[in-house]
């Protein structure tokens, strides 16, 4: 009976996750142009990928993106959640924070593409009216990745803040009362009570947003297409290019498999460091 109830999920998992994953692994061992039949070539793809400077560049670009995106998103979300938790519990405010998250990613990217355009964008007009030079947010290689990271921080920070907020609501109110009686200020309360007791949620949110952040694709595809040169060619975009522009599905599958390995290791380290399975709330 139990099996019957989990069957829908199990079937879905099998068809949409397990089978494609196995197929992807098989492709990574082949020379497969997508147009002709795959041809087994052993580990050749793996050797080539590891020697491909573009692969390492795209990994570095992705790491930079993840660092800025997850870093800024987590800090801002924590602050917002703490404010919601300690200052106001207005439902209107919470909903407003969530609005950017409700906008489709492609729309978000297009809106910012227009706002930040060097010649016609509103933001650059403001910058120029202050007597400064226009900034090529998407065209200057040192700005592209920070720009795209912060756009997605803008889009996701409300959602992350809401998760933290839900976590904070689980922290027993009496710990805060005890802290208040002991004369702890807001900052001390945050660092000594909220943060440590939030740790399991923090770990979960970090792992989920890290994995999500590694999957950055749509904003890049809409705004810079990996450019200028290769300054924003993140790993997902490079995988996509190899598979569907260069018709090298085998090579693309190899990079995808390597990405799974890297993400697996990162997740393991994170969970270990944050001791996610232990909670201090008894």
């Amino acid at each position: 009976m139990a099996l019957f109830f989990i069957a829908p999920v199990l079937i879905g998992f099998g068809i949409f996750y397990l089978y494609p994953a196995i197929r992807g692994f098989w492709w990574s061992l082949t020379d497969y142009s997508l147009l002709a039949e795959p041809e087994f070539i052993g580990l050749e793809n793996y050797a080539n990928v590891l020697q491909d400077p573009e692969f390492w560049n795209s990994m570095a670009v992705t790491f930079a993106y993840v660092l800025i995106n997850v870093g800024s998103q987590t800090i801002i979300a924590l602050v917002l959640a703490a404010l919601m938790h300690r200052l106001t519990r207005s439902v209107v405010l919470r909903t407003t924070l969530l609005l950017p998250w409700l906008v489709p990613n492609v729309t978000v990217a297009l809106i910012w593409l227009w706002l930040l355009d060097t010649n016609l964008g509103f933001i650059n007009k403001v910058i120029e009216s202050m007597g400064l030079d226009a900034v090529g947010f998407f065209t200057n290689p040192s700005f592209t990745i920070p720009t795209i990271s912060l756009i997605n921080t803008w889009a996701y920070v409300g959602y992350t803040a809401l998760l933290f907020y839900a976590g904070m609501l689980q922290i027993p109110q009496d710990t805060y009362e005890a802290a208040a009686i002991d004369g702890a200020g807001e900052f001390r309360t945050f660092f000594r009570i909220t943060l440590p007791l939030l740790r399991p949620i923090l770990a979960l949110v970090l792992v989920v947003s890290l994995i999500g952040s590694f999957q950055i694709f749509d904003t890049i595809a809409v705004t810079t297409k990996g450019g200028p040169v290769n300054a924003s060619r993140v790993i997902y975009y490079y995988i996509y290019q190899q598979a569907f522009t260069y018709f090298d599905m085998g090579y693309a599958a190899t990079m995808a498999i390597l990405l799974v390995l890297i993400l697996g290791v990162l997740t393991f380290i994170q969970l270990r460091l944050l001791r996610a399975s232990e909670s201090q709330i008894a």
Binding site: L113, N119, L120, G136, T139, N140, P228
Partner: peptide
């Protein structure tokens, strides 16, 4: 010509028609 790192993300023809 516009510096590469400060050119528009819009197409050249759109920039031309905007008068820039």
């Amino acid at each position: 010509a516009p510096p590469f790192d400060q050119q528009s993300t819009l197409s050249r023809l759109e920039v031309l028609q905007s008068g820039a």
